[in-house]
Design a protein around this nucleic acid. Structure first.
Lengths: 228, 228
DNA sequence: TGTACATCAGTGAACGCGCGTTCACTGATGTAC
DNA sequence: TGTACATCAGTGAACGCGCGTTCACTGATGTAC
């Protein structure tokens, strides 16, 4: 399995990745259920029929995108929950990590937010499976924490789902904040900053960071006082 | 303004409502960004061109659906937050109210969940406006509560957004539960209940109720210990 | 009440267009000897 | 290393189809007198 791919296999993977990349870009402005196969191949510069060498349908491509967007996130989430710092430092780190991830992979985040409840069933299911895995992994990490003494597995899973959902809400807010700042950056090119951008006032991004941090903190306070 | 509509106006409203109803039904299995104008008119039984007498586009129809789905919910949410019962009773009532609403208007709930982050910008904005109004109204109600003494308006808004988001997460879970139970009901027609449906085990719906109730409770505990 | 005209919700034909899918193909890469 | 054959990623023509939008229209409803 460690031998290098043949030229043919390598080229095939390259085309496949080009299709995924093009689709992801096109999905910034529409939903998967309206994404056309020809649209994707046109963006890549291959014949429409080439699509079928890689995916059965756009739904199939969507499932592959879910894996690409969420598959590599498991270790990251695990270590974030685990880290040995104090609760508040952990929250600050987690929120910053989400902000950084949204900044680095905005299209992936948008895709997941959009298709989580989108019109394509297999994709919804793939996302739900990944999120359930996240929740289970977070539960397993929380279980190791001394603060979790006396908690039932059921309650730990309840809490971990709350954290995972809150993570998505936060990512979605950062995404909106980025978009808004991008728009403001465009329209304010030649003049002074618009409303909300004046010196001393916080940026949209900072506001979201503060909001998300406090929400996470409130949940963690609830956690600390859950028993008794 | 109190005089009865003319025959013409009444018929026009009837057709408009038929278009909205047909669209909502079609949107159970796809996203707005892939909904076709001809598809909607065909379902209603009018000519495609009749659509333009009521809406500029399917996006425009989507915005009207947002108003229909969320517009009438404001008083309901207000009174739920307000009610004079104890915290736990209020949570139980709120979760039951969500369950009942999802049961009564599943298509509306699905539409909002789907299009909140969907591919049609004006619809996303209309939903965000409605949810922001909800959050502001919840904040105003929370502010009257003696438990909110010492809270800044900013922190109250942070909390009310947490409640509103949690409300949507819960509604979405109930919707999935309903779908799952509908599927199980179909396939189990002639025989014994499938896995998870055996006597003594809780239904999917009950599981969601328990989960949502505990999550709301944890947030409320966090609220109680937020200061100091 | 009756008449003459205005309004306008819904019609139906027509348009150009892009869609998903099929099919037989090509030619570079891979493999067996 | 060289040859003969197999594989298969990508091609390009062709198909039938439903799409959104335009346009001039019809006939019931509304209004002015």
């Amino acid at each position: 399995m460690s031998h290098t791919l043949g030229i043919r296999q390598a080229q095939k993977q390259k085309t496949r990745q080009a299709l995924l990349d093009a689709a992801l870009r096109l999905l910034e402005e529409q939903s998967l259920s309206s994404l056309g196969l020809r649209e994707v191949t046109r963006a890549v510069g291959v014949a429409p029929t080439a699509f079928y060498r890689h995916f059965r349908s756009t739904a199939d491509l969507g499932v592959a995108l879910v894996e690409e967007a969420l598959g590599s996130l498991h270790p990251m989430i695990r270590t974030t929950v685990t880290s040995a710092e104090s609760g508040d430092e952990r929250i600050t780190r987690a929120v910053e990590l989400i902000a950084r991830h949204v900044h680095a992979y905005p299209a992936h985040v948008r895709f997941i937010a959009r298709e989580r409840h989108g019109g394509v069933q297999p994709v919804r299911e793939a996302i739900r499976e990944q999120l359930d895995r996240f929740a289970e992994e977070v539960r397993a990490e929380l279980a190791k924490d001394p603060e979790s003494e006396g908690w039932s597995d059921d309650d730990l899973l309840m809490l971990s789902h709350l954290y995972v959902d809150q993570m998505l809400v936060t990512a979605s807010l950062f995404l909106e904040a980025q978009e808004q700042e991008a728009e403001e950056g465009q329209e304010g090119q030649g003049g002074q900053e618009g409303q909300g951008g004046q010196g001393g006032l916080e940026t949209v991004r900072e506001r979201v960071t503060r909001l998300a941090t406090r929400q996470m903190r409130l949940i963690s306070i609830g956690r600390r006082h859950w028993l008794g």
